[in-house]
Write a protein that binds this DNA or RNA. Structure first.
Lengths: 258, 258
DNA sequence: ACGGCGCTTGCACGTTTCTGCACGTTCATG
DNA sequence: CATGAACGTGCAGAAACGTGCAAGCGCCGT
């Protein structure tokens, strides 16, 4: 894959190919592009300026970088974000090609959505707009949105309308949002409406995966949602109390730590 | 594979062969085609213009490129940001407190969602995750998400599941996404599935507002969606052809320009 | 047959776009 | 702070473009 073909490249086509390179490598160097496309650096710079004007790349000294859709918000809990991404990466390995997944609302599940591998032909069923948005445009995903009244606290659809739609679906894997959970009693939730939704999702799925940061592995929520026997996998952090992990294992749950 | 046969080629046949070349190579160069088909570049350009009008290719300086499916909506949302924001600001003034709104999927409607005033106790019904996400957490909004299979091109739920949910709702104001529209025939859409959805939304709403950048006010899409009589308001740009605006006014639509 | 009609084509004209070069400025680096 | 590379801008020539127009050609009807 040495130099590009010597035949003349259409101006606009050249920009498309630069953009493609950009997406593949994350950056381009003006001088290299000039050689490859056999035009002067001036023209390349003009192309990069145009792409930058469409905010498709960021102009830098020497070339250009891919425009990252940097989330300016959510700066508050950078540490949490890092921890959740680590958990999500492990959770994503539990997914097999062609599966149907339930992805509940919640910040951890947003991270899981981002961590899901492309090209596995997955069907993701979710009641959270941000999860859906994260998957739109990525290849190999079929996204099924659960509608209903959106609870601003939860960040997803709940209520009877959502429930009815979920009832018509069966999935392979379920990722319920976790408020609290312990090995003796199972999964607990804060909101009464959510309980029914989560319970339905879990019952309609072959396996259920709990992804929870260490501080959630306590018995501290108000509504009982699911018994420990229905939890197939638990993904949590390495420095969780060993007694807690042992209890989960004893309950028959497969425990994964990061 | 030297030059094409010297015998004269029918115009339509020539276009088919250009299209075939286009599909094979991804691009064509006007000058080369002129030599191969032994016609002037003018004729070739005419052919390419026609193919482009049927959106079978994209016209570029020097030739044409294969029509790529519309850029991912992440990019669409970044294009013409300023113009869309200006339109959205005006569109937002048409909303009264306590109203129920239909907000269709589309980059312009994302801008409208962001422009909606807070504290007006609005109920927003949408099939687009990004619209819903933009309103979650802002005060004075009740968000009702329409579920269903999410079309990655459109960025929102379509199909029978979405349709059924919409059928159970009546709204005061409707903002359908606009592919093309003109005063004589009304609203046109590119995707067949979308048509039913938009039509249902419009019929279930008291008033309908078309928000469209200047270049959308043409008759250039494939499926008829709504007659001009059902369009209550049109929000577009000041430098639109005055004749077009006059035609809309004559059709009984209230025209707002920014 | 003959003239009108629709369609295609090539040409002329003015306009837009692309390109490389020259010049002065800004930037990273030692 | 010195130096060369990278940068932006203005400019001029070339190439491609759109448009209006007239000629060529097949078709049809009175």
């Amino acid at each position: 894959m040495a130099a590009e073909p010597a035949d003349p490249t259409l101006p606009r086509e050249r920009q498309d190919r630069i953009l493609e390179r950009l997406r593949r490598h994350g950056r381009v160097i003006a001088a290299d592009l000039a050689v490859e496309f056999r035009v002067s650096e001036d023209s390349i710079r003009r192309d990069l300026r145009e792409l930058a004007a469409r905010s498709l790349c960021k102009r830098v000294y020497g070339g250009a970088l891919l425009a990252t859709t940097a989330p300016p918000l959510a700066e508050r809990r950078r540490e949490d974000v890092e921890r959740k991404r680590a958990l999500a990466a492990v959770a994503a390995t539990l997914v097999s090609p062609h599966q149907i997944l339930f992805l509940d609302a919640g910040s951890t599940n947003s991270a899981i959505a981002a961590a899901l591998p492309e090209g596995h032909d997955l069907t993701v069923v979710t009641n959270a707009p941000d999860v859906a948005l994260a998957l739109i445009g990525r290849s190999g995903f079929e996204v099924l949105m659960i509608g209903g009244r959106i609870d601003p606290e939860i960040g997803g659809a709940i209520g009877s309308l959502a429930l009815r739609q979920i009832q018509g679906i069966r999935a392979d894997l379920c990722f319920p949002g976790v408020c609290a959970a312990d090995a003796q009693t199972g999964l607990w939730t804060l909101d009464a409406e959510e309980v029914v939704l989560k319970r339905t999702m879990i019952e309609a799925s072959g396996e259920t995966v709990l992804v929870a940061t260490r501080e959630k592995l306590i018995r501290a929520a108000t509504h009982h949602t699911a018994p420990p026997s229905s939890i197939t996998h638990l993904v949590t952090e390495r420095d969780t109390d060993p007694a807690i992990l042992a209890a989960w294992r004893a309950a028959g749950t497969s425990v994964h730590v990061v």
